[in-house]
Amino acid sequence: MDEQLLRARRGEPAALETLVRAHQRTVYGLALRMLGTRDLAEDLTQEVFMEMNDHLTSIQSSGHLAFWLRRVTTNRAIDQLRRRARIDVTTLDEESPLFGAVDEADPLLQRRLSLLLAELAPAARAVMLLRYQEDLDPAEIARTLDMPANTVKSHLKRSLDYLRLRLEEGGDARRGDHST
């Protein structure tokens, strides 16, 4: 991958395509689950990859690139969410696979988790996505979001408690609001 990075820096389209295809699921997945709609997610994904293209010379390795992409995507999404009101998840495209592996998991639970996750405050949502989508540990999440590790752990605990509570309630997932 570092070879691809070097070639992409030299402006080789094939190398750039390899980088985009290697990381687009991470970027688009984070963007979609943070922002809630496919259009917004595509806009953010495009913006992030354009910026990546402009900053390739400052990116040292494939690991650094993955870190940089997660960091820019989540921070941009958090900024967007803070600038506007909470995403209305009911407006999501029904065909958008906000949550994957529908064939293996309970689709009802998928839907509930989708609604509940959208209720979390932007920073808490980003922490949850980096933990469970990207499988980062709290220290890595802290570095990505430039946030104290204890704050990350606190977000994780409170968000999980909130999800459990709301799932047990079994009522309308969009009834309450969680602003951790």
Partner: peptide, 18 residues
């Protein structure tokens, strides 16, 4: 759900391709 919420989240939050 309470028993395995984290596993459910991992299953549900798999990366999505555009």
């Amino acid at each position: 759900i309470d028993m395995d919420l984290e596993a459910q989240l991992r299953d549900a939050l798999r990366p999505v391709a555009p």
